[in-house]
Design a protein around this nucleic acid. Sequence first.
DNA 1: CTATATTCGGATATCGATATCCTTTAATAA
DNA 2: TTATTAAAGGATATCGATATCCGAATATAG
Lengths: 144, 144
Amino acid sequence: MFSKTCEYAIRSTIYISNQSKEGKNVGLNDIAESIASPVAFTAKILQKLVKDNIISSIKGPHGGFSVSPEQQKKVYLVDVVRCIDGEQTFNGCGLGLSECSEATPCPIHFEFKEVRTRLKSMLENTNITDLIEKLEKGETFLRL
Amino acid sequence: MFSKTCEYAIRSTIYISNQSKEGKNVGLNDIAESIASPVAFTAKILQKLVKDNIISSIKGPHGGFSVSPEQQKKVYLVDVVRCIDGEQTFNGCGLGLSECSEATPCPIHFEFKEVRTRLKSMLENTNITDLIEKLEKGETFLRL
DNA sequence: CTATATTCGGATATCGATATCCTTTAATAA
DNA sequence: TTATTAAAGGATATCGATATCCGAATATAG
């Protein structure tokens, strides 16, 4: 459904958000270890998230990554997915046909569209704050 | 959503089904050309579909592939997807966490589950016969 | 039986997603 | 200013999905 890269991106965003209390920064190594992802590869992903203003970064001693309360509030899962996997996650034809459209639909166009729309609206309606709340309540788990 | 391999598999199944009038067989080259897929790679995919009794094959002159009316009736999209992409298409954790479960759900477990369940039930409720009917009526298109 | 057509299936190749390495840039502290 | 710390970013490597090649197996026709 999502690329492995995107999975790391979501996990990173959630982890950093959960650690971002009172301006605290989280280092790359901490993040990678905590979400069980390869360090250098995770660095690349975080760079992209920073560029899209999904997370923030500071260089130098006591630097690291963080997600401000404002970011947590305004960032939805759809933003992370769009940043990493791109818009075609929600637009692509289910059979990979480039000319598939409402006017010339592929054999599974309408059935597929319904599922994809639901995926998109799920992502559009889930923001980081919501996810962190459930994590803190112990209703969900990131370390598994 | 589906692997490229699985897209070829679905396209092949639909194309062969649509051509399977009165025991007519379709050759590999015909299939590959018609659904715009690489010949040799398509051959591999068709082998798998044959093994799972989704389509049939006959060797030798006038041989080729076919999908009997019985197959068209009893085969659902979920069978093709399961044959190529496997069951984890419907079971895997949205964040790639192996220990994610109902008891220890990942942060997007329930939201993701809902989408995945819908995908699965869509695939379970769409069979080849239905798709062919819409193709024949000119409501959908395979060549694009 | 022989020649031909066609799928089967093992071995190999290519390519893009995934992953690593290393140098540069920026921030802090002494 | 200099040393140190940590992210940024370019270059390169690995691996699995995708794709190709070729000989084996099987069916048909003459």
